[in-house]
Nucleic acid binder design. Structure first.
Length: 781
DNA sequence: AAGCTATGTCATCCA
DNA sequence: ACTGGATGACATAGC
């Protein structure tokens, strides 16, 4: 039953995630508050078995101990809260956006529109570092989340992984998804395998069909793309993509795109994206176009000139702008864009997509993994030096049949845009498997990393699901574990969500060494004032934890709680028992005993004296009985707890027989040893608990590092995709002296160390690529 | 009645 | 040498 409900609830969450992925906004609050009682009951309801409470209760019951009064409600509360926040988080799933192709998709099919637009050079002037790629991303998340987050799950748009130490629920879900994704993508080049993507996209398409959101559009878009059609993203209208040919070929001016993007920037993260492209173009001040740069966008690469701009910054600006713009695109469009099966150039490996046959052999051999920004900068010279001659081939910014920017983002075969059908046609001719992938090295490296990550996960008992579970476990608001079996003792829950790894680790490290030892020492030294020995500080910490609602659920802990809970209450109910030396309130030895030298029976009322005396006899310890029998004239407490000097003083005041003295010394010895044993056990327990906490902290750190690694890998992969896209973009725009595009099978772009990009023959590029491959191997040797 | 836990006690070590 | 804390081992009580 428990597992069934858990399964149902998890399934519900997964379904909700799926709905969110395809853009169906799930207003959980509404459901939870009133709309769907079953859902509410499943998630929050006390009848739901999918609460940690159930496990704890079960465990507690099985332990044979009653549940601590606080444990149930807190458990319920935290569990419900965590689940609620978990579901809520779906609505603001933090997946970084981006998409290089978001604005490129907008382009008209090449050749469909004459190059009437005056082309101009790059206009990106705002300087920004790499953080510009990440910065807007972060800042944008809030608004981005309102659009759904499906696109990034596919494209892994996260540029700026949330590296915060605390894992949020979103992060956990994200990791979970990423894990699965990485698994799916982890097989080398299959990461971009068309068929692979096709499957995923089919799934997405099904989901979209179910969601009834522009599903027809995506489906049509996919088919249309397959037929070399272009689909209007907004209307779903398909229209044939004209085959670009020579001079007639139109290409969207990169500058125009940048200008368009730039125009969108001022609207801010949450600003409405201008629906009409014309409005955008109008909004762009013409002064923003450096006249000198006009028509320089797409010059032959070989005519590299000095770059007046920091192209890296421009690229990053472009990235950020595109991210911003992608964000602005409405949800459905994004979803469609990124889930459109074969049409999404980024989601499809352009090297393998049948209808985007081209670029698989484009080589970026010199692209280095470490220098992503450098990779970007490699494009700069060529972009700047693109000849004026190519300006005529630029696509007009505003498609003739496009009235909405959203529509322009809707669909389109980017590959078709980047690479004219001619190119595509020639691409596969000579594109053999032996030819390196344009970003093969990078991707392979990423794949290696991912594979190694997988290995690591597997080696260390992590499977992705476990990792996510682990993080879930550690990162839940309540700190309560979803999977009780995984971590039977949820001591970490005592620290709640606020306990960061550092705080908990510090507390654990300090408490084990100092708390118990210092408590005992301080307690013994302060005996005269407090009349208590040992456990004082321990009980304080315990009380503090209890007050925090931190109730340990492991048996030991609850037992420990009972130890200090029951006895004081008993004593309060039976005040006379405080004279019994054998009470277990080690931390609450009454100071009143100091004044009560005589045995308590003398203070009892005569009416119930006998009865109470019997009870008292039962409560008295053996030593007290012995002391009574031997007529020891002072209490065992004094015998035990007095300092040696006072103790000796006390003994000297009385004429005691040897037997009495021996008994007194035994009582003192046993009493002290008893407290010592208690302290010892307490210390032992603390040590165990702290070790447990340390283990949990380490596991949390491990999960966090794992998550960060996944995030970095994802970012890396995304950047590689961007580089690929840009490579395609640039290469596709190159024209020989006859105005014809270069064949990717015969030519490749090569990055030089100084940032310049050269168009070299493929054979030469391959040779250099092999050389590049050997070098790392040699280094490893 | 057996098993388990909590606690007390003893023996021992050590500071 | 004495005192007392620490701790393993064992005993006992209670559930």
């Amino acid at each position: 039953m428990l597992s069934l409900k858990k399964y149902l609830t998890e399934g519900l969450l997964q379904f909700t995630i799926l709905l969110s992925l395809i853009g169906v906004r799930v207003d959980v609050d509404t459901y939870l508050t009133s709309q769907l009682p079953p859902l509410r009951e499943i998630i929050l309801g006390p009848s739901s078995a999918y609460t940690q409470t159930q496990f704890h209760n079960l465990r507690n019951t099985l332990d044979g101990y009653g549940v601590h009064p606080k444990s149930i409600d807190l458990d319920n509360y935290f569990t419900a809260r965590r689940l609620l926040s978990q579901v809520r988080a779906l609505d603001r799933f933090q997946v970084p956006t981006t998409e290089v192709n978001a604005w490129l998709v907008h382009r008209d099919p090449e050749g469909s529109v004459s190059g009437s637009q005056p082309s101009s050079g790059l206009t990106l002037e705002s300087s920004s570092g790499l953080q510009d790629v990440t910065g807007p991303d972060n800042g944008v998340r809030e608004s981005e989340t309102e659009q759904g987050f499906s696109e990034d799950l596919e494209d892994l748009g996260a540029v700026a992984p949330p590296v915060s130490g605390d894992l949020t629920k979103e992060d956990i879900d994200l990791i979970d998804i990423l894990w699965r994704q990485d698994i799916d993508l982890g097989a080398g080049r299959e990461i971009f395998d068309y068929s692979h993507r096709q499957k995923e996209q089919d799934v997405d398409k099904e989901l979209q069909d179910g969601a009834e959101q522009d599903d027809t559009w995506s489906g049509e878009g996919a088919e249309a793309l397959a037929r070399n059609l272009l689909v209007d993203g907004e209307t779903g209208e398909s229209f044939p993509a004209q085959v670009p040919g020579g001079e007639d070929q139109t290409a969207l001016s990169l500058e125009e795109c940048l200008r368009l993007l730039e125009a969108t920037c001022p609207f801010g993260e949450n600003a409405e994206f201008p629906a009409d492209i014309s409005s955008i173009t109008e909004a762009v001040p013409s002064e923003s176009e450096p006249p000198g740069l006009q028509n320089n966008l797409l010059s032959p690469l070989l005519t590299g000139t000095d770059s007046p701009f920091d192209l890296e910054q421009q690229w990053q600006d472009l990235m950020s702008i595109m991210e911003m713009q992608a964000m602005e695109v409405n949800t459905s469009t994004n979803e469609i864009l990124y889930s459109a099966p074969p049409g999404d150039p980024l989601s499809t490996n352009y090297s393998l997509a049948p209808n985007t046959p081209i670029n698989q052999n484009v080589s970026l051999h010199q692209a280095s993994l470490g220098g992503c920004s450098q990779d970007f900068s490699l494009f700069s010279p060529e972009v700047e030096s693109l000849p004026v001659a190519s300006s005529s081939t630029l696509l007009p910014l505003v498609p003739s049949n496009s009235t909405s920017l959203n529509s322009t983002f809707g669909s389109t075969n980017l590959a078709g845009l980047f690479f004219p059908p001619q190119l595509n046609g020639t691409a596969n001719d000579t594109a053999g498997p032996e030819l390196p992938d344009p970003l093969g090295g990078l991707l392979d490296e990423a794949m290696l990393d991912e594979i190694s990550l997988m290995d690591l996960a597997i080696e260390e008992g992590f499977n992705p699901v476990q990792a996510s579970q682990l993080e879930e476990e550690f990162d839940s608001d309540s700190g309560l574990s979803l999977d009780s079996s995984h971590s039977p003792s949820s001591l970490s829950s005592s620290e709640g969500s606020s306990s960061s790894s550092s705080s908990s680790s510090s507390s654990s490290s300090s408490s084990s060494s100092s708390s118990s030892s210092s408590s005992s020492s301080s307690a013994s030294s302060s005996f005269s004032e407090e009349g208590a020995v040992g456990y004082s500080s321990d009980s304080e910490t315990l009380d503090l934890e209890e007050a925090e609602g931190a109730v340990g659920y492991q048996p030991e802990y609850s037992k420990f709680c009972r130890m200090s809970y029951q006895d004081p209450s008993q004593l309060s109910c039976l005040p006379y028992l405080e004279h019994v030396g054998h009470n277990h309130t080690y931390n609450m030895a009454p100071s009143a005993l100091d004044s009560a030298d005589l045995p308590p029976p003398s203070a009892l009322k005569k009416g119930s004296k006998e009865k109470q005396a019997d009870f008292l006899d039962k409560q008295m310890s053996r030593d007290e009985h012995r002391a009574r029998a031997m007529k020891i004239p002072f209490t065992n407490d004094k015998i035990i707890n007095l300092p040696v000097e006072e103790f000796n003083e006390l003994l000297s005041k009385y004429q005691l027989s040897e037997a009495q003295l021996s008994l007194i010394r035994d009582i003192r010895r046993r009493g002290k040893n008893k407290m010592a044993a208690q302290n010892c056990r307490k210390r032992k327990l603390d040590t165990i608990l702290n070790l447990e906490r340390d283990v949990e902290d380490l596991q949390r750190d491990k999960a966090r590092l794992l998550r960060e690694k996944v995030e970095f890998l994802r970012s890396l992969r995304q950047m590689k995709q961007k580089v690929q896209s840009l490579y395609q973009e640039v290469f596709g725009r190159l024209r020989d002296e006859n105005g014809r595009p270069y064949s990717p099978s015969q030519y490749a772009l090569q990055y030089a160390g100084d940032g310049s990009v050269l168009l070299i023959p493929r054979t030469l590029a391959d040779q250099q690529a092999r050389r590049q491959e050997r070098k790392p191997k040699d280094r490893r040797k």
